[in-house]
Amino acid sequence: MQRIILLLLLFQFSLFAQAQDINVLVQKVKDKINLVNDYEANGRMKTNVVFLKVPVATVKLFFKKPNRLRIKNEKGISFVPKGAVNINMSNVLSSGKYSVLDAGNDKVGSRAVKVVKLLPEDDNADVVLSTLYIDPVNQVILKTKTTTRDNGTYELEMSYGKYIAYGLPDKITFSFNTKDYKMPKGVTFDFEDGSQKKTAAEKEKLKNQKGKMEIFINGYIINKGIADGVFN
């Protein structure tokens, strides 16, 4: 009996210890992110959405604490997914209260990662559940999966380079759900170009779909201050 109790205690302790570990890890990641008050970055954005044909765009990223982020195409036009504000991790980690759950170990690519689930305590929050895949060695997030109430599920994958100390990635891949693409009748500019008619299957492709956006960042200017006007 005692043995059993001891075992249970041990088990509980280990659970507690594990929870402790995770909280520490999340906190460390958070601390790292908190080093950055603001940044400005140059990047190249590649969009892959089935109904969009766009060139790779030269963009500027602006961030300011706590959760303001703007992707700007200074010259031309870019379509920036609405959920893209979440590419900034502080938005995930700093906003509101949440409970942290250890979801074990996994791998992202060849890297061993800790899987952490964040459950917001506010029932009305847009985010229902976030899953973070954290590299415990470098204390950076490599991947997230976020389920939202209104904007579907989106995924982030990040790889790091020079700015790993700030938890700022060199490359971000943002996957998101797109709504149906439909145009009001009579405003499109189609013509008979002799190409094949769209099959039903192809039309289906235009419906609820995953879109992908990749941003390659060449350099950050960190904590040099950013005017608020940029975010308007």
Partner: peptide, 17 residues
């Protein structure tokens, strides 16, 4: 002058300025 976005029934396309 800016990029031209052309709307077609099967999607949008952007042509740089």
């Amino acid at each position: 002058e800016n990029d031209l976005v052309v709307a077609k029934t099967n999607g949008l396309q952007l042509i740089e300025a």
